[in-house]
């Protein structure tokens, strides 16, 4: 984190017979819209015919060597800040089942297609200790990556985590993607769930996200100001969701996440 994207290459695997050229054209044009928004130039790309549709971008950018923000380096006492609501994996699963309402779909699409550059720009003015983006490993998976093997731990307040509407309903009905299950199996050894955390909430915290928000550590005395700036600039779901510390109720939690 901390860099600025400059150039991009399209990567496409597409079932031309099945979906037709128009779908491909729309996807690529949507991608170009976002590249323009981010100030990135499309150089070219690679494409192949395939049974299952895949699309992605390979991006190159610049970062000042002294301003690289790694996903390691959280400091004890930091507030943990998340900039987008969770639930896109569960909602996308419910969309496959034809259950999601149009308003929820619209909202999820808006959240997924919002670039993190606006949050990143604001973050630049603060003493952020570490940062990552929440994607396929889910919130807890990415947080686990930030603290595993380190001498700090994290306490997450699940009631503060922003969540998209209908996510809880869909998770209660069993529309949890298998990725959430895989994420949990891999990382649950580092996570201690308090009894107030329901299995539904646990699955939401492990839900793989598409184009999720930024997760960062910010000194406590700057965090309210950071949240205010984020919300004022339109990153309206940004929230303090927990804190970084070495101990919780006098128990050593180094390298662990406690979820309350």
């Amino acid at each position: 984190m901390g860099g600025v994207p400059k150039t991009a290459m399209n990567l496409v695997a597409f079932p031309l017979q099945k979906l037709g050229g128009e779908v491909l054209r729309e996807v690529l044009s949507g991608g170009i819209d976002k590249l323009k928004e981010s100030g990135t130039v499309l150089l070219g790309g690679h494409s192949i015919e395939d049974d299952e549709f895949k699309y992605g971008l390979s991006i190159t950018g610049f970062v000042h060597p002294k301003r690289i923000l790694a996903n390691k380096g959280l400091k004890s006492g930091d507030c943990l800040i998340l900039t987008k609501p969770l639930g896109t994996g569960i909602i996308n699963t419910a969309v496959k089942g034809g259950l999601a309402s149009q308003s929820t779909i619209d909202l999820a699409v808006r959240v997924m297609s919002t670039l993190n550059k606006y949050a990143a720009k604001i973050m630049d003015n603060f003493d952020i200790s570490a940062c990552t983006d929440v994607t396929g490993f889910g919130l807890l998976g990415h947080l686990a990556e930030m603290i595993s093997g380190s001498d700090i731990g994290a306490v997450l307040d699940s009631s503060l985590v922003p969540i998209l509407p209908e996510t809880v309903e869909f998770a209660s009905m069993g529309f949890v993607p298998s990725g959430a299950h895989g994420n949990r199996k891999f990382r649950q050894c580092l996570v201690e769930l308090k009894s107030s955390v329901t299995p539904i909430m646990r699955d939401i915290l492990f839900d793989p996200q598409t184009s999720g928000g930024l997760l960062m550590g910010c000194p406590e005395n700057q965090s309210q100001h950071l949240i205010k700036m984020l919300i004022d600039e339109g990153v309206e779901d940004a929230a303090i969701i927990g804190r970084v510390c070495e101990r919780n109720y006098n128990k050593d939690i180094k390298g662990m996440i406690v979820v309350e």
Binding site: P85, S159, P162, P165, E169, S172, G174, S196, T198, P199
Partner: peptide, 19 residues
């Protein structure tokens, strides 16, 4: 039995009340 989401910790998910 699927445990219904607890309404006490549902600060950011008021929708859970519909359960």
């Amino acid at each position: 039995s699927a445990s219904a989401p607890s309404s006490t910790s549902s600060g950011s998910q008021p929708s859970s009340l519909s359960n």
